[in-house]
Amino acid sequence: MTRLRAQNIKAGYGPCDVIADLSVAAEPGQLIALIGPNGSGKSTLIKALAGLLPIRSGGIYLDDMNMVDIPVRLRAKRMAYLAQERLAQAVMTVREILELGRAPYRGRLGQISDAGEAAINRAVEAAQLRDFLPRKFGQLSGGEQARVLMGRALAVDADILLADEPIAALDPYYQIAMMDILKAEAARGKTVITALHDLSLAHQYADIVWVMDEGELKHMGDASRVLTPEVLKSVFRLTAQNFEKLFFWN
């Protein structure tokens, strides 16, 4: 199990730094919800933590290993990343897509090992994909596609799972299904970090909430402690009236 830590990192695109001087740590077994307004830097942080966006200063550490010293292939085995865009070839079968999760373990001619088969099987069970295996990706509904790609990320069986808004544009049934999967992964001792826009699901599921705004982590801690009306109103720039509309049931 792996602890993921970022220290004074700076990252961005082109001339702009999206996140500057950010430090944070994620412990194994935690489900961490990363919330914040659009454009606050959630996706950038997730990509940087996953090693997919070069950081401009500072360091990211897996336990005590600096990310820049870890070979790409090894990093790919230790960290799984689930992109916000749900891309896959429409004609590929679900089974083929899940197999891609084992890419870091396979050579040019390599077959999937027994451990790989076990990881795929576990992903199939966790994401409830048994009945979908022979189906083509293009024939599935949006929610089913999301679950398949989640299964692909689980098939990596990495210690750390970083998911960028995995429940965006899903109906409540699939939102809950996806959050259940993430929760179960955390319960297995994985470090799970997910960007979310649904604050009530963040409240329900997350052990820890990171609140991001303007490239900084403004608040961190237990969901019940962080997700207060004051924090939400200030970060999401909500008036008292808007707040009532959003959380009318509270």
């Binding site: 990509k47 997919l52 790409v72 292939r73 990343y81 890419a103 870091p104």
Partner: peptide, 14 residues
């Protein structure tokens, strides 16, 4: 084949 999942995801897979 891995790139069919998009460039960023493929990078995450090594």
């Amino acid at each position: 084949k891995t790139l069919s999942l998009g460039e960023v995801t493929a990078q995450s897979l090594g």
